[in-house]
Simulated assay, not measured.
Amino acid sequence: MPPPAGPARSTHRHRETPPRPASTATRTPAANVVRSSNDSDRPGAGRATAVVVAVDRDDTAVLVTLSIREIAPTVPVTVAIRESANLRAARRAGADSVVLSSETAGRMLGLAVATPTGAELVDELLTPETVPSLTERQVRAEEIGCAPHGLPDPVVAVVRNGQLLRAGASEAGVLEAADRLVQVRHLVG
């Protein structure tokens, strides 16, 4: 499968364990540069278009996030946290988004027990290379003033002024120019 078209983007992921060779991670336009959280080359984060912090301990994740914010104050930072009690610390350290990895995995396990096909579908929705998948995009000019449910690809949520609004909620109303849409893309191949 050829790599997706478009400008090269890089993501820094920090790990506490020894890093894999980066040679395989930089072959595609969506390169992952794996570095240790103790690596002296953290300034490379300043060249990244996004940073993912995924380490073995929440306190380390918070400290790495603080370091990234000093180096790259405007780069989007996503942090994996294991315990929900540390969610606020990660956000205060500068994380733009936080994934509660243990709780998310627990939900997927519970869903797989109760609804195996539903768990398979959720996994597919979370995998960008599959169809269907979840995407987020800016509202287009021709969609301004339309209801979210009137678009060809199903809208799951509207992001307005930093707030996540469920597409069916009355607060979502009609689409505005600055809105972002979370959609299920390409239900029909």
Rank of each mutant, 00 (worst) to 15 (best):
V122R: 04
T65R: 03
Q183S: 15
R42L: 15
D96C: 10
R166P: 06
D56P: 05
V113A: 09
S133R: 10
P148E: 05
A72S: 05
E129K: 00
N38M: 07
R15M: 07
R9S: 05
L63C: 08
A169C: 09
L175S: 10
L100K: 06
R42G: 12
V62C: 04
R47V: 06
A177Y: 09
L151Q: 15
V99F: 04
R82L: 11
L175C: 10
P18H: 03
T17Q: 03
R47S: 05
N38S: 08
A95M: 14
A90H: 02
V174K: 04
A105W: 02
E120I: 09
L125C: 07
L100A: 09
V33N: 01
G94R: 11
L100N: 10
R42P: 08
G145A: 15
A85Y: 01
G145M: 15
R57M: 08
P18T: 01
R88N: 07
R13K: 02
A22K: 00
G189C: 06
S67W: 12
V55D: 13
E103T: 13
G118Q: 09
R82D: 15
T11W: 00
V75I: 07
L100W: 05
V62M: 08
H186Q: 09
R69E: 12
V33F: 01
V33K: 00
T65C: 13
S10K: 04
R35G: 05
A30S: 09
L126I: 14
L121Q: 06
A22V: 03
R15N: 05
V64L: 15
E120N: 04
P154D: 08
P73M: 02
L111N: 01
R88S: 08
A93C: 15
L121R: 04
L87K: 01
S84K: 04
R15D: 10
R13D: 07
I71V: 14
A93W: 13
V62S: 08
R107V: 07
S40E: 06
L121I: 08
V79Q: 07
V131C: 09
A90R: 04
T130F: 10
G173C: 08
A50Y: 10
V158E: 03
T130D: 06
V53E: 14
R27Y: 12
L164N: 05
T127H: 12
A25M: 08
P21C: 00
V182W: 12
S23Y: 01
R57H: 09
A105D: 05
V77A: 12
E83V: 01
G6W: 04
G94A: 14
T11Q: 02
V159F: 00
D179Y: 07
E176R: 15
V77N: 13
A119Q: 11
L126A: 15
V34L: 05
P29K: 06
R27H: 12
V158N: 04
L66A: 15
V131P: 05
I68W: 11
P29E: 08
A172D: 12
P18E: 08
G150M: 11
S84E: 04
V159A: 00
E129Y: 00
A89G: 12
A177D: 10
T130G: 07
A72M: 01
A114C: 01
S97P: 13
M1H: 12
V159I: 02
R180H: 04
S37T: 08
A95P: 14
V174F: 01
R107H: 10
C146W: 14
H14T: 11
N161E: 06
V62H: 10
A72H: 00
V62A: 07
S40F: 07
L109G: 15
P132M: 11
